[in-house]
């Protein structure tokens, strides 16, 4: 979203003040970024209460680590998104064990939750590609690879979950993802960011 890019310098200022323990700045940083970051977490863990826990842990983490934030190396949103994604993926993976042990219906409900989320993961990937002006490059990636990439990045699906979702053997999914990532790296490397 362009508003985030525009606010990046302000966010850097806020983070610098947060590093000094400024709680007012921290609240402003939260107000400015929490909805976007909550959206990221929610897509991955798929439950509002778990996503809120992820968001809370991520912000506490950001508060503790703000002094180590290096403005020259990373945009504030990139830094914060990485914290949220990492926490969300840890949460999802730790929960994956429970899902595997639970009834099949639960997994089905997870799968349907993905279908119900609009726009779907592939739509998000295409929108991002449009915004980054790499749509042509993305379109050159094979359709199955594209779908796998989108399911993994936006919903945090594991290899086996992607395989079940697209109805392909896990070996093929791994190869698609590896190749897809290589191609995506080239596409993203061609952007100005």
């Amino acid at each position: 979203m362009s508003s985030i890019t525009l606010a990046s310098a302000d966010l850097k200022q806020l983070l610098a003040r947060v590093a000094l323990g400024d709680r007012t700045a921290f609240r402003r940083l939260y107000d400015a970024t929490a909805p976007s970051l909550f959206g990221v977490a929610l897509r991955i863990v798929r439950q509002r209460d778990r996503a809120e826990e992820v968001l809370q842990d991520a912000f506490v983490n950001a508060w503790n680590r703000a002094a180590g934030y290096q403005a020259a190396l990373s945009q504030p949103m990139t830094w914060l998104t990485a914290i949220v994604r990492n926490r969300a993926l840890d949460e999802l993976r730790s929960g994956a064990r429970h899902v595997a042990e639970s009834l099949d219906e639960e997994e089905d409900s997870d799968a349907s939750a993905i279908e119900d989320t609009q726009p779907g993961p592939l739509g998000l990937l295409e929108q991002a590609a449009d915004a980054l002006a790499i749509r042509d490059c993305l379109d050159s990636i094979d359709g199955s690879q594209r779908q796998c990439l989108a399911l993994v990045y936006y919903h945090g699906l594991s290899h086996s979950e992607v395989a079940a979702h697209v109805g392909s053997p896990i070996g093929s999914v791994k190869v698609w993802l590896r190749r897809g990532l290589d191609k995506l790296k080239r596409c993203l490397g061609a952007t100005s960011e």
Partner: peptide
């Protein structure tokens, strides 16, 4: 940058 298309 791919995460920016996710609705808040």
């Amino acid at each position: 940058p791919l995460a920016r298309s996710i609705p808040p």
